[in-house]
C-alpha cells in the first residue's frame, strides 16, 4: 500500500467570482519508502497540497489516502487524531516551543497522544542520539544553532513513528552548506526508517536528495 495516494484533488478558496483555485485536479502517489521533492514558485499550491496531505485542510473534491486512512472523509476531531498519530511535520524555521528543552520539544508529541512517559522519554533520547543531539537534550532552542533546531524539529516529526513525514521548506532558514547537511540527514532518517516523505522546497539545489521531484504550477502537478 502506498504511503500517500491522492486522486483528482481540488481545493478552491472562496466562491463565485471570488473563487481561487489553489489545487487543480492534483493526483500524486508516494510509495511507502519514497522521498518526493515538491517544487514550485510562490503561490503555486505547494502549501495547500502539503496542508491537505497532512490533514490540516480538507479538499474541496477528490480523495486523499495516507496509508490506510482516507482522510478526505475525516471530520475535524478525526483529523486531529490523525495528525497526532500518523503524520509528522517539520515546519519552516523549526517552530519549536521556546521554553522547552530539546527533549521536551520531542515529548510534546507523546504528551498530546497520552503515550506512557517512560516509553516516550526512551524514544526521545534515542532519536536525539541518532540526530547527534544527545549532549543538547536539556538545552532550550535559544541555545541551539539553526541546524540543531532543525534536527530537533526532525526528531519531533519522527516521535510518533509516522507513516508519512511532511517537510515545509526545511532549509529555507539555513545557508547552502547547512541546508545540504540537513537534507542529507532527512534522507538518511526517512530512508533508514522506511518512511515516506514529501519535501516542499523552492531550492532546486536540494532536490537531488529526493528520489523524485514533482513540480507544481498554478495548482497543477507536473511529474
Amino acid at each position: 500500500m502506498p504511503a500517500l495516494e491522492m486522486n483528482d484533488v481540488r481545493k478552491v478558496y472562496g466562491s463565485g467570482d471570488q473563487a481561487v483555485v489553489a489545487l487543480d485536479h492534483a493526483t500524486l502517489t508516494v510509495a511507502d519508502d519514497e522521498m518526493v521533492a515538491l517544487v514550485g514558485p510562490s503561490g503555486s499550491g505547494k502549501t495547500t497540497l502539503l496542508s491537505i496531505v497532512g490533514g490540516l485542510l480538507q479538499p474541496t473534491a477528490g480523495t486523499v489516502r495516507v496509508g490506510p486512512h482516507e482522510i478526505d472523509e475525516y471530520g475535524p476531531k478525526e483529523l486531529t487524531r490523525f495528525r497526532r498519530g500518523f503524520v509528522g511535520f517539520v515546519f519552516q524555521g523549526a517552530n519549536l516551543v521556546p521554553f522547552l528543552s530539546a527533549r521536551e520539544n520531542l515529548l510534546i508529541v507523546s504528551e498530546l497522544a497520552g503515550v506512557d512517559r517512560r516509553h516516550a522519554r526512551r524514544r526521545a533520547d534515542q532519536l536525539l542520539e541518532e540526530l547527534g543531539l544527545a549532549h543538547r537534550a536539556d538545552n532550550t532552542p535559544a541555545k541551539l544553532s539553526g541546524g540543531e533546531k532543525q534536527r530537533v524539529a526532525i526528531g519531533r516529526a519522527l516521535m510518533n513513528e509516522p507513516e508519512l513525514v511532511l517537510f515545509d521548506e526545511p532549509t529555507s532558514a539555513l545557508d547552502t552548506k547547512l541546508g545540504e547537511q540537513v537534507m542529507d540527514l532527512i534522507r538518511k532518517e526517512v530512508k533508514g526508517r522506511g518512511t515516506a516523505a514529501v519535501v516542499v522546497t523552492h531550492d532546486s539545489r536540494m532536490t537531488h536528495f529526493a528520489d523524485r521531484t514533482v513540480e507544481i504550477t498554478d495548482g497543477r502537478l507536473v511529474a
Binding site: 476531531k77 486531529t80 495528525r83 497526532r84 521556546p98 508529541v109
Partner: peptide
C-alpha cells in the same frame, strides 16, 4: 504561531 503549530501536530482545542 505557536498555538497553530501545536494544533498542526495534534493538540486539540481542549488541550
Amino acid at each position: 504561531g505557536l498555538l497553530g503549530m501545536l494544533k498542526a501536530i495534534g493538540a486539540s482545542t481542549g488541550q
